[in-house]
Design a protein around this nucleic acid. Structure first.
Lengths: 108, 108
DNA sequence: ATTATATTTGTCAAATACTGACAAGTCTAA
DNA sequence: TTAGACTTGTCAGTATTTGACAAATATAAT
């Protein structure tokens, strides 16, 4: 998927022939703010991912992948970080999952 | 590196025989808050990474890798996201770097 | 061209999250 | 038991994000 998350939403919306106001209502979002999201001037709020998935019948896992990958990529891009960071992150996730990490060890 | 970022700081500090107050002064941080950071009860602030590197003579790239990998891993862990997200993120970073993405396309 | 609808942009107060600071507590070693 | 080190809780100040609204612009139909 070679597009920004906002563009992705806009495509979904226009494919279904919905206006900003109509989709905004479904997502509990002002049409003006949805416009900004689609144009990359505001962030889509993580807490609305499930709602977005259900509105368009999307696989939530796929949607989360799209959403968070953009979040991480932006951070790496703007901090000019090595992509090596992603390999290290993968190891850490594995470790956290093995250890069943809880709050206290790590601020979650 | 199989330790949390707070533990990492604590190790650096104790190796050098510094107290929380002493290191706190160098990092412009209250000793109480530094304690929380070392114990995983507060986040280390990204804006102090360079300072931390210079205090201990660390490679800033390595430090950023440690810091952001933990950030990403925590997010993936707490949202129960597939680690596939990391591969997608890598593609996106490449793309952003090729395209020299600026504000407007993407909220940075 | 005029009207109606859709979209974009700017702004701002309210809500939320983060930070620095301090006080009071526990722990440790001399 | 005293001093210094560390931990924990709290909270006001600050910064950031969000929802909401108004006004401007764009688009399409008549």
């Amino acid at each position: 998927m070679k597009q920004y998350f906002g563009e992705y939403i806009r495509n979904l919306r226009t494919e279904k022939g919905l206006t900003l106001t109509q989709l905004g209502a479904k997502l509990d979002l002002d049409s003006a703010n949805l416009s900004k999201i689609e144009n990359g001037k505001r962030e889509f709020d993580e807490k609305r991912l499930e709602l977005l998935a259900s509105v368009f019948g999307l696989d939530i896992e796929h949607l989360k992948t799209e959403f968070f990958s953009e979040l991480f990529a932006k951070k790496i891009y703007e901090t000019n970080c090595s992509t090596e960071v992603l390999n290290v992150a993968e190891e850490k996730v594995k470790y956290y999952r093995e250890q069943n990490v809880k709050q206290g060890k790590l601020k979650l």
